[in-house]
């Protein structure tokens, strides 16, 4: 489902003496449907960078990132938009939403974007919020004022609203209590069971051990020259 080949990345800082910082070279990674791969490596080794490149958020310098039939490294913006709408989900560490939008609609939005009827989308959203223990009285409120843990759960609900065939998870269990952590891990297991290919970053070793089929150390993708 996800196949990364010979991927490289560098940053050019034009406003700091045009410094070129290579951060990745020769990255290879394949994830089958129903498989969950965890990225490891110390902080700053490029886990998030790789994840963001798969998401299309960072431009690749070379190589290819196949998600389904789309090569994210070369795709047109609108192809990536379509990919994100239909195929590739992403649970980031931060919730970025339009202020004032009710939590229920924030979670339902990915479904609405796919043309799901409003009632059906809201039902699915309510179901997820319920499972993630967001009290119903908070649903009509904007999540911008919620606590970090609540925001994280809203973000997860949003990421799991549509059954994407491929999912990117950036620390989905961070800042969650045991009960909610359990819910999230169950959601991940369900996604795997329905055949989703998952790429994740888990600092929580227990979680990693439970859901990841394989671990890939991104330190191996660090450019030799820069080391």
């Amino acid at each position: 489902m996800i196949r990364i080949e010979n991927l490289s990345k560098s940053f050019t800082l034009h406003n700091q003496g045009s410094a070129v910082i290579p951060v990745m070279a020769g990255a290879h990674l394949t994830i089958q449907p129903g498989e969950c791969v965890g990225l490891t490596g110390q902080s700053g080794s490029g886990k998030s960078t790789l994840m963001r490149m798969v998401w299309g958020n960072y431009l690749a310098a070379g190589g290819s990132i196949m998600v389904g039939d789309t090569d994210v490294a070369k795709a047109e913006p609108r192809q990536i938009i379509a990919l994100r709408r239909e195929t590739l989900g992403y649970v980031s560490q931060f919730l970025r939403v339009v202020p004032r939008v009710p939590t229920l609609d924030v979670v339902a939005e990915p479904l609405l974007a796919l043309g799901t009827p409003v009632a059906e989308a809201r039902e699915r959203a309510a179901d997820l919020l319920q499972r993630l223990n967001i009290p119903e009285r908070l649903w009509p409120l904007s999540p911008t004022t919620f606590s970090g843990g609540e925001q994280q759960r809203v973000n997860i609900a949003r990421g799991f609203a549509h059954p994407y065939p491929a999912l990117l998870l950036d620390e989905p269990t961070a800042s969650l209590d045991a009960a909610n952590r359990e819910v999230v891990l169950t959601l991940i297991e369900e996604a795997k069971a329905r055949g989703a290919a998952i790429l994740g970053i888990f600092h929580d070793e227990g979680a990693r051990a439970r859901v990841c089929d394989r671990l890939v150390d991104v330190t191996g993708f660090t450019p030799k020259a820069a080391a």
């Binding site: 940053f11 050019t12 800082l13 034009h14 406003n15 963001r52 299309g56 958020n57 960072y58 431009l59 913006p77 990536i80 938009i81």
Partner: peptide, 21 residues
């Protein structure tokens, strides 16, 4: 030009980098 979040998070041109920062 490009995908909005890509241009904002990984700007390639000097001017965009300045603008974003």
């Amino acid at each position: 030009q490009g995908l909005t979040d890509q241009v904002l998070d990984d700007p390639q041109h000097a001017y965009t980098q300045l603008l974003v920062s």
